[in-house]
Nucleic acid binder design. Sequence first.
DNA 1: CTAAAATGAATGGCGATTCATTCATTAAAT
DNA 2: ATTTAATGAATGAATCGCCATTCATTTTAG
Lengths: 214, 214
Amino acid sequence: MNGDSFIKYMARQSRSNNSTRAAVADKREAILRAAITVFARNGYFNSKVSDIAGEAGIADGTVYLYFKSKEEVLHSVFDRLMEEMISEGEKELEGIIDADKRLRRIAQLHLEKLGSDRNLAIVAQVELRGSTKFMEEFSAAGFGQYLDIIRQTFIEGQKQGVFRQDLNATVCAKIFYGALDEMVTNWILSKKSYALAPMADTVMEVFFGGVLKK
Amino acid sequence: MNGDSFIKYMARQSRSNNSTRAAVADKREAILRAAITVFARNGYFNSKVSDIAGEAGIADGTVYLYFKSKEEVLHSVFDRLMEEMISEGEKELEGIIDADKRLRRIAQLHLEKLGSDRNLAIVAQVELRGSTKFMEEFSAAGFGQYLDIIRQTFIEGQKQGVFRQDLNATVCAKIFYGALDEMVTNWILSKKSYALAPMADTVMEVFFGGVLKK
DNA sequence: CTAAAATGAATGGCGATTCATTCATTAAAT
DNA sequence: ATTTAATGAATGAATCGCCATTCATTTTAG
């Protein structure tokens, strides 16, 4: 009748396969994925909880069995993203000693991560900045931590003697992050479809060598 | 009784002093200023029209005599800002020939403009990005134009032989803009109060020369 | 059969927008 | 000059639709 039936049927099927704990995690996961899709499409404030539920193939009320409020859903999206970016980053960087190589790897990972999920990128770029309230919470938490990793890496590079010592590490970290961030923003806005990750090379080229002819 | 009387009295006074046209412009202006203050404090979606009216010292309904809707108020804020940045920029750049000097001046103007009005900067950085809808409208209009001026300047620099010719002008323009943008974002989020404009120097230093030790 | 999970209709509050009314100002009439 | 009428800007209480959240009922699982 209303077209939901197939989705709902599949949801029941998959639930019945799993242990309770796994099923709970799955459903949370499904709601988060649905939320990312819906938020990316309409923005947080224009998205209805019923949209998220519909996208996830569940009833409106079910969302509230897994999240306290609509706002908590958005929070959870960010929490998980920052957690993933930082932990995946740490693992990837483990073996790399040279600060310049580390920075290059961070740039690649950053663009790979967001370039691999356009909806997630939209939510991250758009909604995270969508309210100063959220920004303040995040600049104090995940985002500040992320920027700090870049800053520390830069300072390391200065100690290693590969980076100019006359430059302020904090500002350089912001320039580095800002450049990457702009690549992502333009990528999500662009009508053309192109790969995001390769742009890391040009960013590093400029960040390391500058644009002036020698 | 309700504390409005003085403000309302002044409003009436000022109306009676001016020609109708000037009075209309003034009131529009007052509403826009109030909106910038309120949007900066609460974000667009959390701001009520009655908040804006209250901040402007007028009745709720009066807002609708000057703007079709709440959304149009936000739009007008952006329209005016982009218009100002581009026209002021063009005027300032008139006498400057060298592309590197032009870019430096653009960076200074950008940070001076937003650094001189924190509330405006908050609305520009946060709300403009706060919905894909707005972003799309603006990347097609004012913002795209702004980025293009930077790109053209870069290409000019390549022709003049001051910038490396092996770099993609579009990407370099984005890096340049992204770096500036990040300075502004961090500035509005920071609890510390510092001057934004001087950071243009460090940005140019890195953008021109890179961070690697020669 | 019992407990847990899911449902979705109903609720309640909020806030953008409207519009009947007020009132200062200006124009017209005497 | 004084009174009267017309104007339209401004008001703010009332409206109306929307949507987050709740909860009585139903379905599923063990």
